[in-house]
Design a protein around this nucleic acid. Structure first.
Lengths: 212, 212, 212, 212
DNA sequence: GATGAATGAGGGTTCATTCAT
DNA sequence: AATGAATGAACCCTCATTCAT
């Protein structure tokens, strides 16, 4: 029998039914269902396949859902990495990131989920985190994507070289996060994102940019 | 029949069985169980009461758990507010906050949960968020607690007055968040919290403090 | 919560729903279903209770079925022991046993099942055998019932005292077995039980009876 | 398309894949699995063939397993018949049988299973029994094998001629059975097989042997 | 003939909720 | 008001069987 899927397969070589299940899972998560409450029958139904087929590819519902989430993250962060590479300066990259958050694109799909995961110590999440530390996944970790930006920015002489890399990543991460929340979390901050954006932008530059 | 509990009761006038159920819920959450996976039977068992009794006070399991979480947040943020009031300067308040995060006290009990909630769009969370917007809960919102600190800091002349309050709160919040993650999320950032702490501390002051 | 049933309860103090489930199981076994193929839903349906109720009393279907079988054995072998006590001589006891086998009463209910069990090394059966070795069950073991007969027969001077007890039990057991098969196993032996009975009767006496 | 296998094929002209499936079934039964719990996928996997192939030869899993069991019995009882023929006297044959039981060879493979079947009235077993009464199988029935021994023993003047054949077979069968149990059924009889063996041996001779 | 991916009916188990006491 | 035995809908997972290749 064919070996089971473990989530580290090449994104472009997934069996079509697996891809359809992944898409069903992602879709449902975006509709606001909790990862733990997804039903196998609904997933396979949406994927247009038989219920038992899920178990041809995965050992359990949890495996299936976890792999789907990983898949999404690899897609999104992979895309993000590539998109950021196309920007020429750190300022452009920063603008690009903020605009992505504005478009509610990134956030809905990955950033928030990543954050949600990091603040969750359920058993399911521990499994997910374990998978995220597999070698094949590491380059997709947002921390590493951000570190790449920083490094290149420093090489171009745009960013300060006297701050530990860790803190630089944290700095970018945290500001983006708060902007993300201002954009999303309707109600907790009764704030106009448009008025916060320049402050966030400037705040990051103040901390990280090399002063000429 | 007595009306049901809605989560906005005075913290000090809870029926004792309700308080015991709240404590059971909080305890289990801290043991790493997901809010959605708690079982009514376990909750009432730990509370030392009959299973049916839960339904004397709440309409559903979800209501019970949501009210317990609200209760915890009101306790913790209420306590935090009071504790911060006792500090005399903003710098002392900031140190206090960082130390709390260090102690993994705050974070485990509330901050992380709050963040977790804000990054979740499940049905359960929408209910929780709705309850959080009830008038009685508003003063406990972390944003408002932080805004109070800022306001008083500005009155004492310690903090800049030319930045929108929203951004000041965001700034504090985001830096704390990242420090929280450095302290907690073992593995994603392979960072030494001790080396990050002064940077976080200084970063916040750089952005917010009035320069003499 | 009430502790689970383990099969060693006093036969006369069973919760009524448990007794009804036992009866449903026994009935179905006698209708020719295999112990492993019984369905929980059918059992509870026949017992006139909800499906979930089975799990109030037992941890699993296997436990339920095993306890039901033990219950039947305790009932039957308990009854057999008492009935044998009422016979005055070994010859009468022997006649009684053969007649019981004739009536297809004993066999259908217990003897065959006991034999079936002893020739089965499935996991289910290993569990059943483990339960049978619990102290509370031991006096009901057919071997011990038979040994009691022998002992009393020896005390009355009817049976030989020079043969090991083990073999005496074996002797009785094996002859009964064959008679049981002649009566039951339609087809394998195309034998008239009536013609075999006196031979079995005499065979046993020849081996065991004290010759005056 | 080729007709399906029905279990009465010549043992030596089985399609090789069928033989491999039979061997897989037998092996698993000897490992302690119940006939009803064998899985088609496991059987074909062990046989080194595709799962669908089983259905090229058999209409259902039950047919496959039943035929495998019949196959084993024909092999074993055929072998037993031949082996017994090589013994010159009844006493030697008897010793041989007891020794086989001692070696846990016979019993594990056939005798116990045969007994298990005879004490079972499940649907599966009724099918098996039906197949056993097919003409081609009759000579392998243990009863008939034993009857052959008896007949030859009588012809040689070793055995009594005044007892009905049925009873003689029963007598041998039952004693062997109980010895088998003493050897196998660890725990029900806490008996040392070695001490019982001579008694069994002598008991049989006492009943069946011609007294000179 | 041979295969094994796909299927979906089936069944064991869980657990929120009810309600008679 | 408090209880906890009883319930049954819900849901995961298994596995015999089919069928396109």
């Amino acid at each position: 029998m064919m070996g089971k899927i473990n989530g580290m397969e090449d994104i472009h070589e997934l069996p079509p039914k697996v891809r359809r299940m992944y898409q069903a899972v992602i879709q449902m998560l975006e509709e606001g269902m909790e990862a733990g409450n997804l039903r196998v029958s609904t997933i396979t139904e949406r994927a247009g396949i038989g219920k038992g087929t899920a178990y041809e590819y995965f050992d359990s519902k949890e495996e299936l859902v976890a792999c789907a989430i990983l898949y999404q993250m690899r897609c999104m962060f992979g895309w993000l990495e590539a998109a950021l590479q196309e920007q020429e300066t750190f300022r452009e990259q920063l603008s690009f990131l903020l605009t992505e958050v504005d478009k509610r694109e990134l956030h809905k799909n990955c950033f928030l989920r990543f954050l949600h995961m990091m603040t969750d110590n359920s058993e399911f999440n521990r499994m997910l985190q374990k998978k995220m530390h597999e070698e094949a996944f590491v380059p997709y970790l947002p921390m590493n994507v951000f570190a790449g930006i920083m490094r290149r920015g420093m090489e171009r002489g745009e960013l300060r070289k006297d701050i530990p890399m860790d803190y630089m990543v944290h700095c970018l991460f945290s500001h983006l996060l708060v902007y993300l929340m201002a954009v999303t979390a309707g109600g907790f901050f009764d704030t106009d994102p448009a008025s916060v954006r320049p402050l966030v932008y400037q705040g990051i530059l103040n901390e990280l940019e090399e002063r000429s």
